[in-house]
């Protein structure tokens, strides 16, 4: 009991430190308001352009892989919102490699706050809120257009989808950062799974090869970000023919991923502290 109390206290301590640093960066960002607005709009436009590309595709077709525009928009909105939230809150951990290289990680290690919290919060970029906001707008539009018989349970499913999706992407960001303890120049690799994952999840699973969908379900469980819950919401079968209850496993998968990411991060940091590189 004492240990769990201590853990709760240290979590509270970490969250507090995160909020402190974030608040300071937000304040400093807002002193250059014009620059902030341009960047936030640019950020929203960046992910918005991907949706424009989808719209352009649908100017030539009615369905892609058997999915209509509102359904693809639902997939797009859910995935981009989840990625946007994770990127906003934790995206800065991808700078870990350069911190190891230039030695500024040492500076974080002499401060009385968890290193992970400091890496994630440092240079917090509020402008990144553009992407999740834009994605939420698309998601909102899609939810009004798809044929769904809304029940409280389905509303919970949507909310759980977004939160566990963000957690899964956050775990991947963290795993990528932990990998940079070993390979400092490999920041790009995680992009394959975060931005690349997002680029994949925007489209229906029917578009991709069975092996890819299987890999995205069992190896790197991106399918739980939006595919499985959204297919359930839309009343469609998933292409792998998994049992129905799997569609609800998103939060469980997210928790397992976060646990694994935490272990990887700790191992990476322990390695750093024993080798200094």
């Amino acid at each position: 009991m004492a240990e769990s109390f201590g853990r709760a206290a240290s979590v509270r301590h970490g969250v507090r430190a995160y909020l402190l640093i974030v608040a300071m960066w937000v304040r400093s960002t807002l002193t250059y308001r014009a620059s902030f607005v341009i960047m936030a709009v640019g950020n929203a436009a960046g992910s918005g352009l991907e949706f424009v590309a989808i719209l352009l595709m649908f100017s030539h077709i009615d369905a892609l892989g058997g999915f209509g525009l509102p359904e693809v928009a639902l997939l797009y909105g859910a995935s981009a919102t989840a990625l946007g939230l994770a990127d906003l809150l934790l995206g800065n951990v991808e700078r870990l490699g350069s911190r190891v290289r230039d030695g500024t990680l040492d500076v974080l290690l002499v401060r009385p706050a968890p290193v992970y919290v400091q890496v994630a919060a440092d240079r917090f970029a509020l402008r990144r809120i553009g992407r999740p906001l834009q994605a939420l707008a698309v998601l909102g539009w899609a939810l009004t257009r798809v044929q769904v018989d809304w029940t409280p349970g389905r509303v919970v499913l949507v909310v759980a989808m977004l939160l566990s999706g963000a957690a899964i992407f956050g775990a991947i960001f963290t795993l990528g950062a932990a990998f940079q303890f070993v390979a400092q120049d490999a920041a790009q690799v995680q992009n394959s799974f975060t931005y690349g994952g997002n680029a994949m999840l925007q489209y229906p699973p029917t578009v991709f090869s069975r092996e890819l969908v299987r890999g995205a379900t069992f190896v790197i469980p991106l399918a739980f970000v939006n595919w499985l819950p959204a297919l359930r919401l839309l009343g469609r079968d998933d292409p792998l023919g998994l049992p129905g209850w799997v569609d609800f496993l998103g939060p469980v998968v997210a928790a397992v991923m976060c646990g694994g990411a935490a272990l990887a991060w700790r191992a990476g940091l322990r390695g750093y502290r024993s080798t200094g590189s």
């Binding site: 077709i61 892609l64 394959s192 680029a199 994949m200 489209y203 578009v207 890819l212």
Partner: peptide, 12 residues
Amino acid sequence: FGCLIAYTFQAL
């Protein structure tokens, strides 16, 4: 990324 985009283009 090439693979992912290639699949969507295949569908398109």
